[in-house]
């Protein structure tokens, strides 16, 4: 039968299976060798740490999907936290008193998201309208955003928030910390946006071939702008989570390490121009966190154990490259 077409992308991504396999192997491995690995305490500590990195990785991913990059994700997160923090401490200090917990958190989130929109428009303008290569545009904006934050805080960490701020990080539902649910929620929204909206469809097309996208009537500038705004807003959400976990806001959190990690996660998850899966990014973030926590426990007390984690991340990256190479060449036969 000619032209028998099955449904829309019904096959499971091979990369997803590979990542799930790696995740399972790691869980089993650490579960056996380290008794305390599968305890509630260890799992909930992982669940607090990974959402920040996970959301920043989604922020990176969507820009990579249109052939761009956003080096300013971490700077955006920090600037959002700093500005939101300064706003509640200095502009509306009455909120920073106990008993206004709900209003405080809502205000912080709104200010952070506003900062996300503005920084996103800034990046999007540079990339879409001034045609600055994304790597240069966001390198510049990274410096600008950090500079603004340092200028406003004089390089100091912003502290003195009421305990209510810590609620986001300290609350648990069914024993799982709230930030993890925030990560799951953000991931679902991003997944739906990319896969089931015309915005996501056009994002994939633009990433695959910008010239054909233009000739197909896609407004490349507008899509690029939206992608950078969305990227910055995701970064701002990560900023709020960091703020809540550390009870402070500073320009010095994460910095270059976080940015390179988000790129690493994107590569491991197989994100390229025109293609990217939120599910793969999600699993990859879990894998990196498991490796990090697992080796930390295993090598507790051993000198240089922190470096071992980086080493294993690197090995994993190379292993995935090798597996992908062989599965690709087999497909070609």
């Amino acid at each position: 039968m000619k032209n028998s077409n099955v449904g829309y992308k019904s096959t499971i991504d091979k990369q997803t299976l590979l990542l799930l396999g790696i995740f399972t192997i790691l869980m089993v491995f650490f579960g056996f060798v380290e008794d305390s690995f599968l305890t509630n305490r260890s799992i909930s500590s992982m669940a607090i740490q990974l959402p920040e990195m996970g959301i920043l990785s989604l922020a990176m991913m969507i820009t990579v999907m249109i052939g761009g990059i956003n080096l300013s994700v971490n700077a955006t997160a920090n600037l959002s936290a700093v500005l939101a923090g300064l706003f509640v401490l200095q502009v509306v200090p009455q909120l920073a008193t106990d008993g206004n917990g709900g209003a405080l958190i809502v205000t912080i989130i709104l200010v952070a998201l506003l900062v996300g929109v503005l920084t996103g428009v800034f990046n999007g303008f540079l990339v879409a309208y001034l045609n600055v290569p994304p790597i240069l545009a966001t390198l510049a904006s990274m410096t600008v955003f950090t500079g603004i934050g340092v200028g406003l805080t004089k390089g100091q960490t912003v502290t003195g928030f009421p305990d209510a701020l810590g609620m986001i990080s300290s609350q648990s539902v069914f024993g799982i910390p709230l930030p993890f649910f925030v990560f799951v929620g953000v991931s679902i929204v991003t997944h739906v946006l990319l896969k089931y909206t015309t915005f996501g469809f056009k994002t994939r097309m633009l990433g695959t071939n910008p010239t054909a996208a233009k000739f197909s009537g896609i407004n490349n500038k507008s899509i690029t702008m939206k992608v950078y705004v969305m990227s910055s807003m995701l970064a701002s959400i990560a900023g709020v989570l960091i703020m809540s976990r550390t009870m402070s806001a500073s320009n010095a959190y994460g910095t270059a390490t976080y940015v390179t990690l988000t790129i690493l996660i994107g590569v491991l998850a197989g994100v390229i121009s025109g293609k990217g899966s939120v599910i793969n990014v999600f699993i990859t973030v879990l894998i990196l966190q498991v490796i990090s926590t697992g080796f930390h426990m295993l090598l507790a007390g051993v000198k240089g154990s922190a470096f071992f984690k980086d080493f294993v991340w690197g090995i994993l990256l190379i292993a995935i490259f090798i597996i992908n190479y062989f599965s690709r060449s087999r497909n070609k036969e």
């Binding site: 992308k9 994939r204 097309m205 695959t208 071939n209 010239t211 054909a212 996208a213 000739f215 025109g274 293609k275």
Partner: peptide, 10 residues
């Protein structure tokens, strides 16, 4: 190839 199609997409 350049102006008409998205070769890597379905």
């Amino acid at each position: 190839v350049i102006e008409g199609l998205f070769l890597d997409q379905s």
